[in-house]
């Protein structure tokens, strides 16, 4: 079992590297982070925050869009693509179990996305730190960002793979992936914001809204990162990060729950795949 898991994961990671996924994702994330840091650096003095912390705060909002997109793009045809190319039948004709295939592919792709996040943000963070100086809170903010970015990437790799196992066809899986990205990353926030505006200070805003924020992995990621800033200049849904009735670590737990649930669901769905 261990040998099979390692064989599949190694192959999958090698493919991610050969197809330049890791490199391209790293470059994209590093460029975005560096652009935010250097272009936004001027506001640092006015807001009495160091550039590193400030960039980490804006980057956590940008990452909510970018990291899920990268993770979904990488994973959406994990199974459907192999069904169409005919290689899945070959793999499943060996003693490899379906859950092993799911687990090993997930591990490799989550690692690939995670490494891209780590390298991309570390490169940009180092450049910003070198240019504007680094403070302890700023460094911690980046460590949190990279760590939770790893988790966010893993959750959305699991989303993409589950959708891939569910749909069986690459085109359908792509549509699902884009749909889920829009739903979880864009529309969910708009709906929540609309709800808060409509409800004012009512029951929805104080009791239900915080849990709804926690229930979305993308929002949970942002919540965790923003709650750590004492004076981050954030507004909208993010501005409410400080009024949550639970500690920021609860957001990490939410990501963990999502991951566990998706892995269980996805591994179960692989039984329905017709190779």
């Amino acid at each position: 079992m261990i040998r099979r898991l390692l064989t599949i994961a190694t192959q999958e990671f090698r493919l991610a590297r050969r197809n330049l996924w890791v490199v391209l994702a790293t470059v994209a994330l590093a460029l975005f982070a560096a652009a935010l840091g250097f272009l936004g650096a001027g506001q640092g003095a006015a807001l009495q925050a160091d550039v590193l912390s400030l960039t980490a705060a804006s980057l956590s909002t940008l990452s909510v869009y970018l990291i899920p997109l990268i993770a979904l793009l990488m994973s959406y045809d994990a199974f459907s693509g192999e069904v169409e190319r005919g290689t899945l039948a070959l793999t499943l004709a060996t003693p490899a179990r379906r859950w092993e295939l799911f687990a090993a592919k997930f591990a490799a792709q989550a690692l690939a996305v995670g490494l891209a996040v780590t390298f991309g943000f570390t490169i940009a963070g180092a450049a910003i730190g070198a240019a504007y100086g680094a403070s302890a809170p700023g460094l911690f903010a980046w460590v949190r960002l990279v760590g939770s970015g790893f988790a966010l990437g893993a959750v959305f790799v699991a989303v993409g793979m589950t959708l891939s196992a569910l749909s069986g066809r690459t085109a359908t899986a792509a549509a699902y992936a884009i749909g889920f990205w829009l739903l979880l990353v864009v529309l969910y926030d708009l709906a929540l914001l609309g709800g808060v505006i409509a409800a004012g200070d009512g029951l929805f805003t104080t009791r239900i809204f915080p849990w709804l924020v926690l229930a979305n992995p993308a929002d949970a990621f942002r919540l965790y990162n923003l709650a750590a800033f004492g004076s981050a200049p954030v507004s909208g849904v993010d501005g409410l990060a400080h009024t949550m009735p639970f500690p920021p670590e609860a957001a990490l737990a939410a990501l963990g729950l999502w991951l566990a649930a998706l892995l269980a669901l996805g591994a179960q769905l692989t039984r329905r795949i017709k190779p």
């Binding site: 040998r3 099979r4 390692l6 064989t7 599949i8 192959q11 090698r14 493919l15 050969r18 197809n19 190319r85 005919g86 290689t87 039948a89 070959l90 793999t91 004709a93 060996t94 003693p95 490899a96």
Partner: peptide
Amino acid sequence: RIAVNYLPETVAFPRALTGAEVLRYFSGL
């Protein structure tokens, strides 16, 4: 599964992998 091996009607191995890598993968499994 060990006793049987299979060549499907159409199979497209990943284009980025070498022939030896493809065989090492299935040997591992």
